[in-house]
Design a protein around this nucleic acid. Structure first.
Length: 525
DNA sequence: AAAAAAT
């Protein structure tokens, strides 16, 4: 590849830049930390010491070598300390995690937890993120006597139960295990007065929202809630409205933008040439460490094995691997022992690995936003990052979706030694080469979607369908007869003379109420 | 279509 790389700065020596997260790399060296400082000389930089954190926490911050809070930290910490709810719109890499862990430590210090009643709860979408947050508590809380527990799947529940029984101040959890344990009675959330919902947009993507709603409904309405999301889609906004009370809204860094510090490129090659093309890119890159994203877990395995066979220092990370392997691989990568991490979208968001020089997309992501998240792993802290993608000729639509979202074209690059192709003219066949045309059966099946010639008669004797609801509404003036389907599904109140069985005399009154669209979460006091 | 998360 050679697109426009000639202007790039001289190679950075491997030693300094490679160190993983600052959390693990510093031994108290108080460097006037560069991250924001050399980006733009903005107004006077705030100091951590001005944020009202007490001595043991301030000392831990000093020892880790931090002096200046990031924008989200500077803005959020004072409000959290005031006891306000916070709605933070921020991506990982902005210092979001410390913006809640630091003030939480401050709030929690001083009193102690009771058995099985955690005083605070942090919800994370993936186990890796949960672990990362836990590390944060260890680092910043090392001069305090607070306890925390990590409640995630894939690990022994007995152990987690025992820690809970001793009482924890901070509970860091993924939703599945938390609910499981709660239902087994190992946990009471009535005393939990501080709740953090992290990466809400990702929770939404992963279908966790019902779980989250359930968990929130187990907490006291008299609680402080901190809610973070990288984006503020309407759905997320709705959730925030349900969970938060009079929140202070803090936004840093706009979503769906590619940082200007990332150099991107896209090569179009045949599927069979992808591995060779990737190796070429890896060898030519002035690379410290890189993440390679694949769309499928099995491709992660295959590619990783292939890279190792070709002499690369690579490890695989995806959700089907044992938890212990996931953690140790991630650790090896962070420490620099592994140079290349081949992974699924498990690591596309959130996971904070410092000093990542390159991101490669072995496959273009299915969803354009994932592209932004993936390549956002590089180009951090004012350093130039590199993000190169491979696509097959039939994936033009994916590339276009990405370019439309980011508003920037991805420059084409050529990989030497493989056939560099163009987009095929074939309109769009989701699955690849062959099957250029088929019988009209296909097209016939697909056809009705567009024209939709709805005759009133056809509408009338069919149950209302999604696409035709409108037509139905205008055709027939709304009758007040409730749809039978809904009545049968129990979505409507039973008639008073039809008792609901199974409760005897103890039937709660709400059983007779009509169901609401979503559960009422925190009734105001 | 794929990935994540509870056993």
């Amino acid at each position: 590849m050679s697109a426009k790389k000639t202007s790039s700065a001289p190679a950075r020596p491997a030693k300094k830049a490679v160190t993983a997260s600052p959390a693990t790399s510093t031994d108290g060296a108080v460097t006037p930390d560069a991250p924001a400082a050399d980006a733009e000389p903005e107004q006077a930089q705030p100091l951590f010491s001005e944020l009202g954190l007490s001595e043991p926490i301030q000392r831990a911050i000093d020892e880790m070598g931090y002096r200046h809070p990031t924008p989200i930290q500077a803005q959020a910490i004072p409000y959290v300390l005031m006891g306000r709810d916070v709605l933070g719109v921020a991506q990982t890499g902005t210092g979001k995690t410390a913006s809640f862990t630091l003030p939480m430590l401050e709030i929690l210090q001083g009193s102690r937890a009771r058995a099985r009643m955690p005083r605070s709860l942090i919800l994370e979408p993936t186990r890796e993120l949960a672990l990362q947050v836990a590390e944060n508590f260890v680092n910043y809380g090392k001069h305090l006597k607070l306890t925390h527990a990590l409640l995630i799947g894939g690990e022994s529940m007995a152990e987690q139960k025992e820690v809970l029984n001793r009482g924890v101040d901070v509970l860091i959890a993924t939703p599945g295990r938390l609910i499981d344990l709660f239902e087994r009675g190992g946990l009471l959330l009535t005393q939990t007065k501080l709740l953090v919902i992290d990466e809400a947009d990702r929770m939404l993507d992963m279908g966790f929202i019902p779980d989250i709603e359930k968990i929130v409904s187990m907490l006291s309405p008299l609680r402080q809630t901190l809610f973070f999301s990288a984006t503020m889609a309407p759905e997320i906004r709705r959730l925030a409205d349900a969970f938060l009370r009079n929140p202070k809204e803090i936004t840093v860094s706009r979503p769906s933008s590619v940082a200007s510090t990332i150099e991107t490129g896209l090569a179009i090659v045949d599927a069979k040439d992808k591995r060779r093309a990737l190796r070429k890119l890896l060898r030519e890159a002035d690379m410290q460490n890189a993440i390679v994203f694949c769309n499928r877990k099995r491709d992660v395995d295959v590619l990783c094995k292939s890279l190792i066979k070709h002499g690369f220092s690579a490890g695989a990370l995806h959700g089907d691997l044992a938890q212990s392997v996931r953690f140790s691989t991630l650790e090896a990568f962070k420490s620099g022992e592994l140079k290349i991490l081949v992974c699924s979208d498990i690591a596309a968001r959130g996971i904070d690995i410092g000093g990542l020089s390159h991101v490669f997309n072995f496959d273009l992501p299915f969803h354009a936003e994932d592209y932004v998240h993936r390549i956002g792993r590089t180009g951090r802290a004012g350093r130039t990052g590199h993000a190169y993608s491979l696509a097959t000729p039939d994936e033009e639509a994916l590339a276009q979706a990405i370019e439309k979202l980011t508003g920037k074209p991805i420059p084409r690059i050529e990989v030497k030694g493989v056939d560099n192709l163009q987009w095929s003219d074939e309109p769009r066949s989701t699955n690849g080469r062959r099957k250029s045309r088929k019988s009209n059966a296909d097209t016939a099946a697909a056809a009705p979607v567009t024209p939709a010639p709805t005759t009133p008669a056809a509408v009338a004797d069919e149950p209302p369908r999604r696409g035709r609801r409108q037509a139905a509404a205008t055709a027939a003036p709304a009758t007040s007869t409730p749809p039978r389907r809904e009545r049968e599904a129990g979505l409507l109140p039973a008639a008073p003379d039809q008792p609901i069985t199974g409760f005897g005399e103890d039937m709660p009154a709400f059983m007779r109420l009509p169901r609401r669209e979503k559960p009422v979460i925190a009734a105001d006091e």
